[in-house]
Computed example of a mutant assay.
Amino acid sequence: MNMNVLGNKSNHNFVLGIISILIPVVVTILIINFFSAFILLEKLQGLPVIMPIFLCPIGAMLGFISYRLYKGKLSLIGIIINILLFMFPIIYHVLGTFYFGV
């Protein structure tokens, strides 16, 4: 009976950790597709570049909650990846402004 409770905690840790990593992976795939145009998604236009500003804080919070409760490495990796990807649109727009001078 005690092992069942521990199994449940590890499942929650696993699910929150996977979601906190899945968010930046999906956004990264959309960003790569935006720049390379492997699959034409004309309706999205520039949305993949802006998506990290809205989605990565959610992923970081899920990873933080999971890390606070269960101390898993998966959630810590999710926090780090989300924070790095959150900075991408800011750096992209600053470098674009410096390069193109607009």
Rank of each mutant, 00 (worst) to 15 (best):
I58K: 04
N33P: 04
I31R: 00
L44N: 06
F38H: 11
I18N: 06
L47R: 13
K73Q: 12
V25I: 13
P24W: 04
G46I: 13
V25H: 04
P48W: 00
G46L: 13
V102W: 12
G78A: 08
F54T: 07
L6I: 09
I90L: 15
P24T: 05
I32P: 00
G96R: 08
Y99D: 03
C56N: 15
I79F: 03
L62R: 01
L55A: 10
M51C: 10
K71F: 07
P52Q: 00
F38Y: 13
L41H: 06
P57E: 06
Y92N: 14
L16W: 08
T28K: 02
F35D: 00
L62K: 00
L55D: 07
C56T: 12
S36A: 15
K71E: 08
L16N: 02
K43L: 15
V5A: 11
N2F: 14
K9P: 02
L74I: 08
L22F: 15
V94E: 09
S75V: 03
V26W: 01
G17W: 01
N4R: 13
F14G: 07
P89C: 06
N13F: 06
K43I: 14
I32G: 00
F100N: 11
Y70V: 03
L22Q: 09
I18P: 01
V26Q: 07
S66K: 01
L95G: 04
I23A: 06
N2S: 14
L76Y: 07
I65K: 04
N33G: 01
N13W: 04
K71I: 11
L74S: 06
G72T: 04
I18G: 05
A37C: 08
L16Y: 13
G63K: 05
I50V: 12
P89S: 07
L55M: 15
L84M: 10
Y92K: 05
V102A: 11
G59E: 02
R68H: 11
I23K: 05
I58A: 08
N8D: 15
V5K: 15
I81C: 13
I31K: 05
V49G: 04
L41C: 07
G7H: 09
F100R: 07
F64M: 14
V25M: 11
N11G: 11
I32M: 00
L85M: 05
L44Y: 12
I79N: 02
N13V: 06
K73E: 06
F64T: 15
L74R: 01
K73W: 11
F38T: 04
M87W: 07
G78N: 01
M51S: 08
I91H: 02
L40R: 11
G96K: 03
M1L: 14
N33L: 03
P48K: 03
I32C: 00
I29P: 00
I91N: 03
N4V: 13
S20M: 04
Y99V: 08
P24I: 05
I31A: 01
V15I: 15
F88S: 08
S10V: 14
Q45D: 13
F100V: 05
F88L: 14
